[in-house]
């Protein structure tokens, strides 16, 4: 497995905020998202949120000491608090808020049963082990009530956390996406073509060149 790299050194999609790539609506929407802090929670209680923070740390892990981390757990809580639904739910799963509360409590109960500690207090190995067992549908403790753990993993944990993570500018920088593009859009569409307001990927030995290019995307 490859590991995450700093592929787009110096690239900051937010540097384009005041360019023709961001219309006023985009600016206000992203400003609101950036106002969500990592530990803000309105829907989940403290124990549930602590578990969610730990789950998020394993599903969409982030480098330690990142200055602008993605508040993925808080963004999920924000979704639950604002009542934005997906438009469907699989039979066997309760409504999203109920499912999250139930599932986080159940994960914590499984952690205490297996390791004698809260999920959030476990090490990465034990957390991953529990999450894999959850993914396989093999967590069946009484705390799950009638909710299959694999459905909770595949239809709640995965989509909610992954969508939250990749809706954040920090993640956009990490993958070198151009970001918001209204109304300017793009001009160069062919293979290996890049507009000056797009990220430059660092080629081995040419990181400095990429860094200098990336400082220019907002100009």
């Amino acid at each position: 497995m490859q590991s995450r790299k700093d592929l787009f050194p110096g690239y900051d999609v937010l540097a384009k905020r005041d360019t023709p790539s961001w219309n006023p609506k985009t600016r206000s929407v992203i400003d609101e998202r950036l106002a969500i802090t990592p530990r803000t929670h309105r829907f989940l209680d403290a124990a549930e949120f602590a578990t969610l923070l730990a789950v998020a740390g394993r599903i969409v892990p982030q480098p330690a000491g990142r200055t602008d981390p993605v508040p993925a757990a808080a963004m999920v809580d924000h979704k639950l608090a604002s009542g934005e639904h997906d438009g469907y739910r699989q039979a066997g799963l309760p409504e999203q808020g109920t499912a999250w509360r139930l599932g986080l409590k159940a994960l914590d109960a499984e952690a205490r049963a297996a390791f004698g500690a809260a999920f959030g207090e476990l090490g990465a190995w034990a957390q991953d082990m529990l999450l894999k067992t959850c993914e396989d549908g093999a967590l069946r403790g009484p705390a799950w009530a009638d909710m299959p753990s694999d459905l909770f993993f595949k239809k709640r944990i995965i989509p909610d956390l992954v969508k939250a993570y990749y809706a954040h500018p920090t993640a956009w920088n990490e993958i070198g996406w151009g970001g918001p593009a209204s109304p300017r859009g793009y001009v160069r569409m062919d293979f290996d073509r890049r507009d000056p307001w797009e990220a430059t990927e660092a080629k081995p030995g040419r990181e400095e060149e990429a860094y200098q290019e990336n400082l220019r995307v907002g100009r």
């Binding site: 497995m1 990749y166 990490e174 993958i175």
Partner: peptide
């Protein structure tokens, strides 16, 4: 776009954790 691509990699491809975030860096 990124959230759709992330949920495709995580959902249909079954990736999460470091496997997901590193694979996502191939996006371009």
């Amino acid at each position: 776009l990124p959230t759709l691509w992330g949920s495709t990699q995580a959902g249909a491809h079954g990736l999460w954790g470091e496997a997901l975030v590193s694979e996502m860096q191939r996006y371009n």
